[in-house]
Every structure is written in C-alpha cells, then in structure tokens.
Design a protein around this nucleic acid. Structure first.
Length: 601
RNA sequence: GGGGGCGUAGUUAAGCUGGUUAUAACGCUGCCCUGUCACGGCAGAGGCCGUGGGUUCGAGCCCCAUCGCUCCCGCCA
C-alpha cells in the first residue's frame, strides 16, 4: 500500500474535515449494496461504520465481497452528494471513494447475521466472537471498560489501593461449593479458587493497608441463573478504622458518584435523597424480601389483628398456630384482575410458596366483591379498608395467610410479579437503598443446623452476644446489603477483629476446635497481632452493569460467559485431561459419565 | 436433585383436527441494474422436522424415552 498514508484510520476519526484526504481504512464488510456499475460497502470497525464506494476497475474485485470479509481500502474522503446524507451514521455525511482494495481475509457463510437480533443463545455462545461483533454486544463490552475505569478512579480518589490476592487458596468449609484445583507437588491436596478474597483482604487490613479494593474474579461451583455465573467479578473493598455508619456513608457516596458518572448525570439529579437504611425486619415485614424493590409502594399490610376471631375459620386456625394474615393493595387495577387472572394467580401463588390466596375487588358502589367478604361484619371490612387503602372502585386486595416466613416471602414474590404485570414502575428509574441489621445466623430447614447468614467473619451486635449459644437466631449482625431495584447489588459487614469473638462465632456454627484451627487458625493467629477494627463490602460488577445497561441477563455484559450447565460452548470447557496429567496429580477417575469420555465436541 | 418452556433449510419463524411435493423472510449461488444505505428485479440451490422407539393405512403434528438449550425452585457464607 501507498507509503504516503502513514497509518490506518479509525473510522470514527473521519469526518467532513477530512474531505479530499487520502486515507487508509480497514475493517469488516458489514453490508454490500451492489448497484451494477457502482458498489457500496458499509465498512465496520470497533469505532464506527463508514460507506466505501467502488467504481470502474474495482467493480469486479468488489463484487466478490461478502459480509464479514476483512478488507483494507485506500481512497479519498469525499462529501456525499446532496440528499444522500445518512443521518443515522456517525460518518453519514462522507464516504470514501476507493482507489485500491485488499481482501485481507474471507468469511464463510455465517451461522447468523451480525445484524440479527433474535439469535439463540446456544449459537451466540458457540460463535461468541461473531456475537461480540454485534452492535449491542460491542457497546456492552466497551461500556464495561468505561465503567471499570470510573470505578477505579472513584475508589482511588478516596485512597483505596488496588491490591491483588491469590487465586489459589485454601478450601473453606462454609458457604458455596469450591472450585477445586489439585496440587501436583502435594498429591492428594487441593487448592480452591476464591469464592471471595475475604480472608486475604482482612489480612491486608491487619497488615496496615487501611483501604483496599480489587476488581476480583470470584468462583462458586453452584447452579447457574440469569444473574449468576460460576465465575464473576466483584468490586471488592475493605477499610479499617470505621464504624458501620461511616462505612455506609462512604460507599453510598462513592457508588452514587460512580453510577452518576456512568449515566452522565449529576449525583443530585440521580440520587437527590440520602439512601434509606431499612432494617432486615422492616424489609421482610413490608416487602416480603431482604432485597426490596422500592420503585413502587404496595407494601404488605398485616391485617392479622383485624380478622382475628371474626369467625372465618381458615384465618383463625392459621392465626392460632402462630401464622399471619397479610394483604397487598393494588390501586385502580380492576381491569387487570379479571376473574380469570385471579384464578390463575392461585396457581402462580403456589410457585411462590403460598398455600393459598384470597382476594377482594371494589365494586362501583364501593361494596366488596370477594369470596371471603361474607365472613366479616362491616366494621371489620372498614378496618381492613382503612389499614390497606382499599377504598376506591377498581382497587384490588390480594390476601395471603399462613406461617410468618412463608407468607411474607410468598407475598413478596407476588408483589414483584404483579408490579411487573401491572407496570407499576418506571424501568429506567434507579432506586438504591441499604438493608441493615441482618440476622447473624440462619437455620437449615433440612437438619436444623445453624450457619452464618452472611459469613462467619461478620461481627455480631455487641448487645446480642449473650444469645450466641442460647438463642443464636436472635443475634443480629453488623451486615448490610445495597439493593438496586430489587436486586442485591452489594453485600458487606463490619468484621470481627478479636480472636475471642471469632472463635466463639465459629463454635456457634458448630465447628470443632480442630476444624477452626486447621481452616482458620492463621486468621485467628493474625487477630492476635494488632488487628484494627475493619469492615468491607463487595459489589457484583456484572449485576450492576446488567442493571445499568438495561439487560436481563449478566451474560450480556460478560465477554465469555458459561451456559446454564456451566460450559464454555466455544472452547468446549470443561474437558478431560490426559492420563499422564492425572497420574502426576495423583488422581484416579473412578466414575465417569460416558459422554465426558468423548471429548471430540 | 426437582419443575416449566423450546428444538422444523445457514438463521429466525409458520405449519390448522395426523392426510398429496413441508412454507416464508433473511442469508447463500447465478444473472440484470450508476447514488444505495432494510437497495431493487429475475432465476436457483438448500431439510434425517434434535435423536431413538412406539401408536397408525399414514406422524413435523399423538405417546414414551433420550439429548441439547433456556427459565425457575433447591443451592448460591
């Protein structure tokens, strides 16, 4: 190619300022429009798209071009003729008249068109490199980079220090299943990939790096969801010499700045108010979840005391055995809640773990249309109206009754479901809040065992310490979540920093002294050498981006995600390893599914 | 581990109550076309209807099994 042209131009650099310039451009053929004696090619690179025009002696060569060929073109930038300006294109007022054309690489018949929007996820993941050429994915990947840059800048502005922690760690007994890595040098022993850099970041606090952050890859060997991948990225943070309120203030401010900058808005525009700090108890009471979506009101209203002993046996039996009766009021929703919808809702409610559901609708004359109204006198009905706001024509009341937890969480699920159906919120609104005062422990429904609700390094409320062994479920923890539009965005806690408390908590979750020593001995040992008070938080980067970009799945913001069966369709991972590697590792496979023997796919 | 949805040309879909040669759009191949930008026109190729079994005179359609993808529950400190 010509030595007069020093370099290849990025397509977004070219504009009407370059008219008459001789330029070289390279990229992919996005579209060919062959008019016979004139061929237009839309050329695409990472930055933009540009129309290239082929005429005369280049016609024959250009007529062979197909979608996704990689080409290099030298030519002259010129203005498009009058009326031929494409306002949808960044470079729509200009074009390049080609003087020469080099086909740098051809492209086979594509498994899908780059411009297609409705491709099966299977194909997209198998040909991820093609998928990533699509406009939306290209934008998402670029936006991800822009976002992490803002994250780093805002954290570093507050003196957070980027420090790496190891990927090969010790396996821990608590929490999710570990991805395990066998050790060759120590046959029979294993590393685990980190579920989070939790213990190392606490050690960093003890080492004196009072503000740490890391964009840390984390690994959990659990089943996948639309918002869950086996490896994902967290904005992992830890800081010393703070109490919970200071920490929440600090991260509230940082996160508001990060999101606002990313959205090109001011903090005042996006988050005019300080964030609500809702207790876990209130969150469950009013929203039936620990991650409430507060873009819409519709709180759960407890009407247990109103209906108690009024002669409706179903409710009375439930209340007598310690259950509750709760209602959800949807204003002006009569046209949605047809008889058919209400019947279907009975089935839907079972998906959310509710045993049953009742309902009431306000008729034109403000009387009740409801299968249960006949059991109650008018005083009771008006008490319910007063407490729930069920008072205008077209209002609908959804009533659930049963054990406390099941009923709250069930109605909470229904609340989200119905809000979506009824379009009760603005999709573009961002509603952040804190949920605080989580319980320290939770009890397994299977075997009744006690485990840490957050993780066992979380500091319990000092005033609840007395219940640690007598009534552990009553102990509250200094753990907190940041919630965005009903999605858990971040999770953190003030940590334990003295060896005695840490040992007690390990004991409370049933670890023996020996287990504590072998798994966490180094941490307890470290606490003995001047551990500062500290706490931290970790934000799910993928989830946050998913919400900010309006995507439904984190696969849309991760360059190379796994399928729901935790496979990489492009590379075929996971695969088998050679017998030699296995024997080096001292590993013998005793049970192997037949399909995994055949690694050819 | 459990439940729901989907599987038909390269792709996205249609295919009625089981009935002739399984449709369409985009893509692909060839020809025509000098201002297109969803270019247009003409002609054409392309299918083990995921796979295996069954019911039936007859199956893309019904039944059973199986595989794959996907969503949800369990699980995810």
């Amino acid at each position: 190619m010509s030595f007069l042209i020093k370099r290849t131009h990025r397509l977004n650099e070219l504009s009407s300022k370059n008219i008459s310039d001789k330029v070289r451009v390279m990229g992919w053929v996005a579209k060919v429009r062959n008019l016979g004696n004139m061929i237009f090619v839309d050329l695409r690179d990472r930055y933009s798209t540009l129309q290239v025009v082929f005429e005369e002696e280049l016609l024959e060569k250009a007529s062979k071009l197909r979608n996704e060929f990689v080409i290099g073109v030298e030519g002259v930038v010129r203005e498009r003729p009058q009326g031929m300006i494409n306002t949808k294109m960044l470079t729509g007022s200009i074009e390049v008249k080609a003087d020469s054309l080099a086909v740098l690489n051809k492209c086979e018949v594509l498994p899908f068109q780059i411009t297609d929007t409705d491709i099966s996820e299977h194909l997209r993941l198998k040909y991820r490199y093609l998928d990533l050429r699509r406009e939306k994915m290209r934008r998402n990947i670029i936006e991800r980079a822009r976002f992490t840059k803002i994250v780093r800048e805002e954290l570093e502005r507050e003196d957070f220090l980027d420090i790496e922690t190891p990927y090969l760690q010790k396996s821990t007994p608590e929490g999710a299943r570990d991805f395990v890595v066998p050790s060759r040098i120590h046959n029979g022993k294993f590393f685990a990939l980190p579920q989070s850099p939790q213990q190392y970041k606490q050690i960093l606090m003890i080492a004196g790096f009072d503000r740490y952050y890391q964009l840390a890859k984390c690994f959990r060997d659990e089943d996948l969801r639309a918002d869950r991948q086996p490896e994902f990225t967290q904005i992992d943070c830890e800081m010393s010499f703070i109490d919970q309120d200071e920490l929440l203030d600090e991260f509230e401010s940082i996160m508001k700045k990060i999101i606002s900058r990313f959205k090109n808005k001011t903090v005042e525009e996006l988050f005019p108010e300080p964030l609500t700090r809702m207790t876990y108890k209130d969150s469950v009471d009013y929203y039936g979840t620990d991650k409430p979506d507060i873009r819409f009101e519709n709180k759960l209203v407890d009407i247990s005391d109103i209906v108690r002993g009024k002669g409706f046996k179903v409710f009375d039996d439930i209340l007598e055995s310690g259950g509750i009766v709760n209602a959800l009021c949807f204003k002006d929703s009569g046209s949605y809640f047809t008889r058919k919808v209400l019947d279907n809702l009975m089935t839907t409610s079972k998906d959310y773990g509710l045993a049953g559901l009742s309902w009431a609708k306000k008729k034109e004359d403000l009387s009740w249309s409801s299968p249960i109204a006949k059991y109650f006198d008018s005083d009771t009905l008006s008490s319910i109206e007063e407490k729930t706001g069920f008072n205008k024509e077209g209002d609908t009341l959804i009533i659930g009754a049963g054990p406390y937890k099941k009923t709250k969480w069930g109605l909470g699920g229904l609340r989200n479901f119905l809000a979506k159906e009824l379009n009760l919120y603005d999709k573009n609104e961002l509603k952040l809040l804190w949920v605080v005062e989580f319980p320290m422990f939770e009890q397994s429904e299977e075997d009744g065992s006690i485990s840490a609700a957050h993780h066992p390094f979380t500091s319990p409320f000092r005033e609840d310490m007395d219940y640690l062994f007598t009534d552990p479920l009553r102990v509250r923890s200094r753990a907190y979540d940041m919630v965005l539009n009903g999605v858990e965005l971040a999770s953190g806690s003030i940590r334990i920093h003295d060896p005695e408390t840490q040992s007690k908590v390990f004991e409370a979750i049933g670890l023996t002294r020996k287990e504590i020593e072998s798994k966490f001995g180094f941490l307890i040992e470290a606490f003995k050498y001047g551990a500062p008070p500290h706490g931290g938080i970790a934000f799910g980067l993928d989830r946050l981006l998913m919400l900010l970009l309006g995507e439904e799945s984190i696969k849309e913001v991760i360059p190379f995600p796994k399928t729901n069966k935790a496979q990489d369709l492009m590379s075929g991972a996971p695969g088998t390893v050679s017998d030699k590697d296995l024997s080096d590792l001292g590993i013998k496979i005793t049970r192997m599914e037949e399909e995994s023997l055949d690694d050819s796919e």
